[in-house]
Design a protein around this nucleic acid. Sequence first.
RNA 1: GGCCCCGUGGUCAAGCGGUUAAGACAUCGCCCUUUCACGGCGGAGACAUGGGUUCGAUUCCCGUCGGGGUCACCA
Length: 548
Amino acid sequence: MNYTDLANIIFPNAKEISYYEEKYPKRNLKEGAIVTRFAPSPTGFVHIGGLYQGLIARKLADQTEGVFFLRIEDTDQKREVENGISGIVEALKEFDIEPDEGMINESEEKGNYGPYKQSERKEIYEAYAKYLIMQGKAYPCFCTPEEVEEIRTKQEAAQIRPGYYGVWAKCRNITVEEAIKRIQAGEKYIVRFKSPGREDRKIKHHDVIKGNVDFPENDQDIVIIKADGLPTYHFAHAVDDHLMGTTHVIRGDEWLSSVPLHLQLFQELGFKPPKYAHIAPIMKNDEGNKRKLSKRKDPEAAVSYYAQEGIPERAVKEYLLNIANSSFENWRRANTDKPMEEFELQLSKMSVSGALFDMVKLLDVSKTVISKMTAEEIYEKSFEWAKKYDEELATLLKDKSYAIKVFSIERGNKKPRKDISKWADVKENISYMYDVEYEKDTRPYEYQLIQDKETIHKIVKTYLEKYYDDKDDKQTWFDKIKELAGEMGYAKEVKEYKANPENYPGHVGDISTVLRVSLTKRANTPDLYEIMQVLGKDRIAKRYEKIR
RNA sequence: GGCCCCGUGGUCAAGCGGUUAAGACAUCGCCCUUUCACGGCGGAGACAUGGGUUCGAUUCCCGUCGGGGUCACCA
């Protein structure tokens, strides 16, 4: 009886690994091409951190003419959620981060290195587990969860390092004969890796982001095949990334401390290890402490949150790129109109520690992104958003040609307005341009310097009867307001007023403020001339009649 | 607790033995402007701490303190 007999009893039907090695040949890519992946669990929630990783992975593959694929890590059936995979696929698509290979919906995939869903790769893992057993590098372990727990309790009591290793690894030295006998007797078991490592030895590792890191060797006999027959993350990672030709493993830095184990696994399996890039998580300040953005506590942890708020996907990506490489900001300023795809991301310049999520900064990025859109684009995007999240706004936007006129106010020129940072701002921004909303608006008129109702009525009436003409160009229009100011005894020029404030009750600005507030109920609006043009004389007159 | 990583203004961050310690967001003031937004100019604001090493430390080494990660038949 030898290891091969044991292996055959445990995995009688497993193929030889040469079968898979041939089935998944080395990828034919140009020198330096990065093959990477996004490998989430389908737990029904795409985290902003996941999007961040996906964005970086996609970009690196693009920059090197490599490959980016989506692998679903569904080896923990307990955590699975219905439609988890399509949720991930769609979220990536929303953000225009599409994989070259991998799952495309709940059950279908594309690419030659599949299956891309781990639960469908069971026979592959078995082949490699069998391969290890045949070499005496893995073994069946008969310890029950309770026994393992007991070991841990003893270790804790004795204050020694916990885990299944060395002398504590009860099943590691069971003879082949005994193992076979116990298996044939129907005893339950799992498969463990027989670690050749020693805790008192150090390994040196170079992480693409974290730099040089030293660790003790791994000496834990971790389980590679669970009781349900599926592999653990560690084992699946080694097998899959080897077979799929991953050159760079880009993942969250919570995995950093598993690197010694993973390297050992690649070593014992005879695989060439990939490069590792461990990304620091996006954090949040919680009562003075930093912690990862949490699914349960923080709405902004879910990528769906940004869609709900109406923050454009492009803005979220630019913000993330900002966190990834702070040089992006300078690049962006120097290349205002280039697509962000042209920015070259460098892994080595990523921060080793986690950045605090900054909503204010995101909104600032978003504001700039939106300011560069055309009125048409703003219309389409905000309408699409409104249909899902704001019925009233959607109703307003139904009249497309009017809406485009509204969105065109002070837009499309070299200094476009920057007053919308998310689609949820739109309604408040444009409501006064719609009579229904204007009439519904119960806020008081925000008059400034001139508060006296009689004066206000007089200004408005005189303006309408004597000065306003739709046909005027902007200069003429403003000259007339100056005339009006003069007629009312106000300074026609602000400078003149500032030079001699005692000669006037106010200046032309105070007059136009009356015209503005009377028309919109607000003290702050975009260009009044354009607003009047869009509204038209009749509507202006009606509003002016009704002022309070 | 063991192991690993990190510590520059409120936030994100340049920096790699000699700098007036960049820049962006936020904040404050001024300018531009008929208001606001934009834009321009300017202000305030930082090398966690104690020891070394060195002619000289933000930069290198050690300790302290602080933060984060990890120690599953979860990923």
